[in-house]
Nucleic acid binder design. Structure first.
Lengths: 157, 157
DNA sequence: ATATTGGTTCTTAAATTTTAGAACTAAAAG
DNA sequence: CTTTTAGTTCTAAAATTTAAGAACCAATAT
């Protein structure tokens, strides 16, 4: 059974798909995320996804496993039903953003390595690199504080 | 004239290259960034880059133009010398990070579009999406404050 | 004017990624 | 135990990306 969607929904799926492609996901994986965002029912089976997006079983399987691997989706099951119901782990957005911040800290470590191999002949240049690295570490340290501050303004409303 | 580099430097170039590939750059462009980070002389000519990295003129030209286009590098010239001396715009890191933040705000707008097409049948799901979008906008708003706070702690030292 | 330097652009080859199709498997249903 | 369901895995075709090679061009030097 494929999910019926109007043109607005379909356009939005592509938009979300492309946004995720830009971050390095394969097109099919991006579209699956798009579908799971706009689908009226937020838990869809393998075949609903496959048929709605007109993709092969192999592409569906590979993309779903990738998305589970990187923590974007998971699935539930219901007893007496062998199907898996795939869904976005949106409640998980804090961890997803935290993951991005961890990439930033990695880059700052690489920059520190750069500083270690550079001579003292280029003080201004070195100083910019150090600033960049330091700010990344500052961001990493301050992120949990920022998140907490947001949670609080949220509660006040 | 190719730049002489030891194995430590070469390994670091590849590391920086791969880090940038992961963010969507082509390998050659990533390596050029790596070279410009570790090179003892921070301003290199077209041919120094080409020869040091063993890449073709076309690949060098295309990658340099791409890197200039996305604001990662620029070049100086010296009168009486037709060569361009390419260099990292590291002093520019504030703008580069700001650019990332702008991508975040775009995603939050897409999520707001998602909310606009979703019905009220999935309140918990919708609420997570809204939180995600709101936090992104909060981050965008707070980023300049964070940066300013960092500049101040910097001055105190 | 002619040659050389410092690149750019066009075409194409090679590598990589992405997806489809078909064969397969494990669990459950009949 | 045979069949169906729900997917997985393997192979390979198609699409895309990446980079090389060669021809080209504009500015300077001779």
């Amino acid at each position: 059974m494929s999910i019926k969607l109007d043109d607005k929904h379909k356009a939005l799926i592509e938009k979300i798909g492309i946004a995720h492609e830009e971050k390095g996901l394969q097109p099919v994986a991006g579209r699956i995320l798009g579908l799971l965002y706009v689908s009226p029912r937020p838990e869809l089976t393998f075949d609903e996804i496959r048929e709605t997006l007109n993709i092969s079983k192999s592409a569906t399987s590979t993309a779903l496993n990738l998305l589970m691997h990187i923590g974007h989706i998971d699935y539930t099951t219901f007893s007496g039903n062998r199907k898996r119901y795939f869904r976005l782990k949106v409640g998980n957005w804090r961890d997803l953003i935290q993951g991005e911040i961890e990439k930033v800290i990695k880059m700052s470590h690489v920059l520190k390595e750069v500083l270690a191999v550079r001579g003292d002949e280029t003080p201004t240049f070195n100083c910019s690199i150090e600033e960049f690295a330091d700010f990344m570490q500052f961001m990493h340290k301050e992120f949990p504080v920022l998140l907490q501050r947001w949670e609080q303004t949220k509660n006040k409303e």
